[in-house]
Structures are given as structure tokens and as C-alpha cells.
Design a protein around this nucleic acid. Structure first.
Lengths: 202, 202
DNA sequence: ATATATATGTACCATTTGGTATCTAATATA
DNA sequence: TATATTAGATACCAAATGGTACATATATAT
């Protein structure tokens, strides 16, 4: 509850465990390898924490993955969605997305949420709930975006914004997976353009 | 090499192991659960074969999965691709695909190839090679289809058939995954239409 | 009948898995 | 100084993993 910096120190041995640091490190590892593939043992070894620390802090693998996903949502998904769903001409945004997809980053490639979903059945209830929450959040944002696009007359005629939002959701995930597979930049850009070309009037 | 039906019986104890049957059963299981998630132990128990039989017949998990994938390619992927890539108006074919996607089947939902790819790193070299081969086969067929579509003037102007083929490949995979997740039929149809709408002239 | 050859399946192997009991180190309070 | 309290980490657990040795079953050949 209290770290070295917050409130006056309690009674026992002071904590050296850096929670934020552990979450960040675990996120990068899980992002690369995927939860359900990377074992708790391996993860603890790589992050440099003792297994009991993990269980004390996060309650187990399930709790850790759920915590990591929340961190991922806040620091990666939401910023990306906010960037993408501004009220600018859609062509501009799609182009921005395409460029973002091919821009090198210090982050691992691909989508942690997608990787988690692919092995969800081997993970715990907290993770499942967190995934569900993230799915809803993402869809809500994208649907709202499409709703505004419709109001601006940008959406193709007769297209339900809910359907369009769901479509963008899956396309986004697919594009992130393609990027993770190391597809060349020009192909990635072409796929992005093509994926969104059905949404707008031409 | 010789089963009960072929050539005169050899010397030792006659074989009761039904290879075709085992492959079919294993395919259904792997198709549902995904290779890399379903363990060898569990698989053998469910198929009703002894573990040493699996190792004798297929050389191990890797060999079995590769064999199963080949069976999947021949009996599911290729027929579907041949159905889809006929030289009919694309709108008709896309419509046919949408209907096929929502038609109940005795087969498990989703794409075995896609499930395999999602955990490829935990599988062996034979499986990896087989996946690569299937990927190439699929892309070649779809690219050729797009090539013919271009010749027929069906492809949107200025669209490279190779790019289009790759796009259809990923869209197909995505749609199969959506179907596997149990998305409702109308949403699935809408996604299909939307996914292919960027390819054709309107 | 006996020997040879092949197929099967039990029972085992070392290793790894997620998860803990418990012992020790380090602090605050009394 | 003594005690309570908390954190850390070694060393362990049962269960499951992929993989095999080997005894046994069932056939043909002599």
C-alpha cells in the first residue's frame, strides 16, 4: 500500500520491491511472448523478482496479468485511440494510423490485448474480466468515433455506426498483428488504406 | 506402410491402429482447442490412443500436428479456396462466403491454421514448415484470383493484385476468427461485406 | 512346439508448471 | 535490549508436461 516515498514508514522491514518497475518489466515481457506462453517461473527470473513477491503483490499469475493489462490500457491503448479518433477528416486519421504502424518504437510490436485473447482460456478470471472491460472500452470509443463521422457526413451512406465501430475494432487488431509479424512498411500501409476504404464515401 | 487392407500380412502382430481415424480425431481436437494449448497427454487420452503409438506413427507432437495440418489443408482449406476463387462476379462470391461463414457445420469453428500460428513458437520445426507451406499456398491462390479479377476489370483501378491477395488472405483469417468467437450472423455478414468493399469498383 | 518378428500399452523418466511453507533479514515500537 | 511486524528468498510441493523403456500380446515361419 505505501511505498518508500509515501506516508511515514510502517513498522517492519522496508520494502525494496518496486511495483511500478515490476509491472513495466512484466508488461514488456508479456507483450513480447504473450501471457499463457511465458511461464511465471520464467517471468520472475527475467524481471528479477522472487516468486513469492509476485504472489504477495499481485495474488498470482492471474492478478499480475490483469494488472499489466490495466497498465497497457492506460499507457498504450487509450492514447492510441485518442490519437486515432480525433474529429479530423478520416482520410487524415487513417493515414496517421498507417504511419504510426510503421514507425519504429521501443515498445514490443503487436497488441498485448490480442495476444492475451488468443490464450485466454488458460488464464484466470481477473484477466478474463479485464480483457472484457478493455474490449468494451475500445469498442465504445470506436463506435462513438464512427457516430461522429456519420454526423459529419463522412461515413458511407446507410452504414450503421455500431457495425462500423466493430469493424474498425477488428481491423485495428488485425493491423497490429500484421505489424507484429514484421510485415514490410509499404504492405502495411496498403493494407491500412484498403481496410478502411469501405467506410467512407468516395 | 501396409494397413489391414493392403498386401499380404507380414509376420508380427497385426496393426489395429487406425491412422486416418487418429488424424481425423486429432484434427477436430486441435481445431477446437488449438495446438500448443492441448497437451499430448490429453490428446492421446481423448483420441483413445497410447502415447507410444503417437510417437511411433508420427514421431512426436511436432509430427502429428504437421500431419494434421496437411490433412486440414487438403480437406478444408483447399476446397474452401476453390469455392471462393471461382471466376464469378466477386459480389456473388463474397456473398457466398458470408453465407458459408454463418452456416452451421459439424466442423469446429475458426481456422486451425490461425490457431496454430498464434502459438507457433511452442511448436516444432515440421509444424513450422507446414504452416509456412500452407501460408504460401493460400496466398498464391488468392493472388491468382485477384489477378484474374483484375483481368476481368473487377478489381478497383490501380490496385496491385499481390497487395489485394494478401489483403484477402488476412481478411479471410480474421473473418474465420470472428466466426469462431461466435459472433452473430448478421454482424458477420456485415463485416464480410465491409471487408471486401474496398476491392471492387463501385 | 518353438523361434522370430511386429504392435501395443503400462509404467516410468526428468523437467517444468503454478503455487507455498518457512526461515532469515531488517525495521519500528516498547 | 527485547519484541513485534513486515519483507525477502530459499527450498520445497503436487501435478502435469513431453518423451521412452520394456514387458506383453499376437501374428507368421520353421
Amino acid at each position: 500500500m505505501n511505498n518508500s516515498h509515501s506516508s511515514k514508514r510502517g513498522r517492519g522491514r522496508p520494502k525494496t520491491f518496486d511495483r511500478e518497475r515490476a509491472i513495466e518489466d512484466a508488461m514488456r515481457l508479456l507483450w513480447q511472448r504473450g501471457p499463457g506462453v511465458l511461464s511465471v517461473n520464467e517471468l520472475c527470473g527475467a524481471v528479477g523478482i522472487a516468486k513469492p513477491s509476485l504472489y504477495r503483490e499481485f495474488g498470482g499469475e492471474d492478478g499480475l496479468v490483469a494488472t499489466v493489462l490495466e497498465c497497457y490500457l492506460q499507457t498504450r491503448t487509450l492514447p492510441l485511440l485518442d490519437e486515432l479518433t480525433q474529429d479530423l477528416p478520416m482520410a487524415r486519421l487513417v493515414n496517421g494510423l498507417a504511419n504510426w504502424l510503421v514507425t519504429p518504437s521501443t515498445d514490443p510490436a503487436g497488441c498485448l490485448l490480442a495476444k492475451t485473447r488468443s490464450t485466454l482460456d488458460t488464464l484466470g478470471p481477473k484477466t478474463t474480466a479485464q480483457v472484457e472491460k478493455m474490449k468494451q472500452t475500445q469498442r465504445a470509443k470506436l463506435t462513438a468515433w464512427m457516430q461522429r463521422a456519420q454526423n459529419n457526413g463522412e461515413l458511407a451512406a446507410g452504414l450503421d455506426p455500431t457495425i462500423a465501430g466493430r469493424f474498425v475494432d477488428t481491423q485495428l487488431t488485425t493491423l497490429l498483428m500484421l505489424a507484429a509479424q514484421g510485415e514490410p512498411a509499404d504492405l502495411l500501409k496498403a493494407q491500412t488504406t484498403l481496410a478502411f476504404s469501405g467506410l467512407t464515401n468516395r
